[in-house]
Computed example of a mutant assay.
Amino acid sequence: MNKIVTLSTGKPKKHSWKNREEISGIAKEKIEMTYLTKEGFMGDGVANTDFHGGPDRAVCLYPFEHYGMWEKEFKNAFTPPSFGENICARNMLEKDVYIGDIFSLGESLIQISQGRIPCSTISKHNKEDRLLGRIVETCFTGYFFRVLKEGTVNVESILKLEDRKQERVSVLQGNFTMFHDRKNHKAIQELLQIEELADVWREKLEKALI
Rank of each mutant, 00 (worst) to 15 (best):
residue 154 N to S: 12
residue 79 T to N: 05
residue 69 M to C: 02
residue 61 L to V: 01
residue 49 T to M: 14
residue 122 I to F: 12
residue 3 K to C: 15
residue 184 N to K: 02
residue 104 S to A: 05
residue 205 L to H: 04
residue 72 K to G: 04
residue 190 E to R: 02
residue 40 G to I: 00
residue 30 K to M: 15
residue 173 Q to I: 08
residue 98 Y to L: 14
residue 174 G to L: 09
residue 24 S to I: 14
residue 56 D to N: 01
residue 137 E to T: 00
residue 1 M to N: 15
residue 115 G to V: 07
residue 160 K to S: 08
residue 128 E to V: 08
residue 207 K to W: 12
residue 18 K to W: 07
residue 38 K to W: 07
residue 79 T to C: 10
residue 90 R to D: 10
residue 177 T to E: 07
residue 205 L to V: 07
residue 204 K to W: 08
residue 4 I to F: 09
residue 136 V to L: 01
residue 76 N to E: 06
residue 23 I to H: 10
residue 88 C to D: 04
residue 162 E to Y: 06
residue 47 A to Y: 02
residue 193 Q to E: 14
residue 149 K to L: 15
residue 148 L to E: 10
residue 150 E to G: 11
residue 49 T to R: 04
residue 102 I to C: 10
residue 133 G to N: 11
residue 38 K to P: 13
residue 140 F to V: 05
residue 35 Y to E: 10
residue 31 I to T: 01
residue 32 E to L: 10
residue 199 D to Q: 06
residue 101 D to W: 03
residue 47 A to L: 05
residue 10 G to F: 15
residue 63 P to Y: 09
residue 57 R to P: 00
residue 135 I to S: 01
residue 57 R to D: 03
residue 194 I to A: 14
residue 153 V to I: 14
residue 56 D to A: 05
residue 64 F to M: 03
residue 178 M to W: 12
